[in-house]
Nucleic acid binder design. Structure first.
Lengths: 229, 229
DNA sequence: AATCTACACTAACGTTTGTTCTATTTATTG
DNA sequence: CAATAAATAGAACAAACGTTAGTGTAGATT
């Protein structure tokens, strides 16, 4: 009987992040199956948490190993260096996002609006589900040597291309009004990217609600009229 | 038929950032008058550059002093610690943005659309003019102890409030259609915030063009129809 | 029973870290 | 000129850094 939707009356200031922490969420999960009973998995999860919280440069090998319940020797049995731990996290993060973006397009009809909304929704959901991974992927890539970041940047460009392709298709069809492709890309990407930094279970919105809202924002940015239910 | 908007034909890939650097721009300027002939000013500029590039944890005191052409002793004569150098940069960055946002509102008529556009434009211009300062302000606040970040977070909240007030006013007037205040705030803020990370003199757009475009995006997000010139 | 893999433990390597000491030189100003 | 401030120089500090070595052991596979 009481199946009515609960209206959110949460004020903006109530869910504002008033701490200096870089990330609100505490979800330390990893997408690929990492065995937490094994040392390698625990090291990755511990490093992910600490890198997201304190940055790569602000985290020591002993910090990681202490949190993982592992000796430094064990870490160096699984990774050649601290930098390679970061590289693995960045690889997982970028590939997971790309995988989700691509599979979101596979499930969906060829209409440009639908495809744009699917991309934005997948972007939001991925960042809500793995916020720490997204924060590290976005804020710590510079800590990697140029050689090791090459392959990761390639994946990032593939993800960007998915959005560019959808935008160009929408323009070709005459559905989208895009005056500047780069700026449109940057704006839509920014909205999704920043989700990882402020989303938390206490923000009062479900990932679904955020995805709905931001998909609508993206649609309005490319000049589409609001959906009429 | 179609609106006489000038279409930019610059390709997206031509201005894409393919390096792993956190920031594209190289503008190391500071807003408040810092005397580069004095040690204090050179230290701040050097630290700004290095913090933006390598992060706070990835930058050593000797790095800063080497780049500033100064002895560590001199740095400690001007700042109690390395952390206080960062704190000063963060203070300058946040206060400069707030100052610009507020003065943008002072120059402008009370129409909500005009005020929203003025805020977004000021946000973009500030981040284009001082990209390193904005990157450090956004990506390195976590390196500050909670005590020292209090006053800086207060300024950030004031800046956010300016946008919230404009949005609420627009809703009250019936001009804006805002289903979720927090998500609208986050989206519009995200678009402006990310500018500092990708803007560079070689991106093919002037700050003015970016400001125009993103102001239009913000307007469309709150449900306003495109401006008819 | 022998072997192998995975991990723990303690200890140490050389380097770099943020910071401080003492002393000396330059520049500004009353 | 004298006085005060500002910057330089070189050295040193304990602590923390990333990384490696050597030894030991429990559980699974052969």
């Amino acid at each position: 009987m009481t199946t009515q939707t609960i209206v959110l009356v949460m004020s903006v200031s109530a869910s504002r992040n008033v701490s200096n922490r870089r990330i609100v969420a505490r979800t330390t999960e990893l997408p690929e199956q990492v065995d937490l009973r094994r040392a390698r998995g625990r090291i990755l999860v511990a490093a992910l948490h600490l890198f997201a919280d304190q940055g790569y440069g602000g985290t020591s090998v002993r910090d990681i190993c202490g949190r993982a319940g592992v000796q430094p020797t064990t870490m160096y049995a699984h990774f050649p260096s601290k930098e390679d731990v970061l590289a693995e996290l960045l690889r997982i993060g970028h590939e997971e996002l790309y995988r989700r973006l691509r599979s979101a397009l596979l499930d969906v009809e060829p209409d440009p609006r639908v495809r744009l909304e699917a991309l934005v929704r997948a972007h939001v959901h991925s960042h809500c589900e793995f916020p720490m991974l997204a924060v590290v992927a976005n804020a710590e890539l510079h800590a990697l040597s140029e050689h090791k970041s090459e392959s990761i940047l390639a994946v990032r460009q593939q993800s960007e291309s998915l959005l560019v392709d959808v935008l160009e298709r929408g323009v070709q069809c005459g559905q989208f009004k895009v005056a500047d492709m780069l700026l449109t890309l940057r704006a839509i990407s920014a909205i999704g990217t920043r989700v990882a930094f402020w989303y938390g279970p206490d923000c009062g919105r479900t990932p679904e609600q955020i995805a709905d809202t931001f998909a609508a924002f993206a649609a309005s940015i490319v000049g589409l009229p609001p959906r009429s239910g």
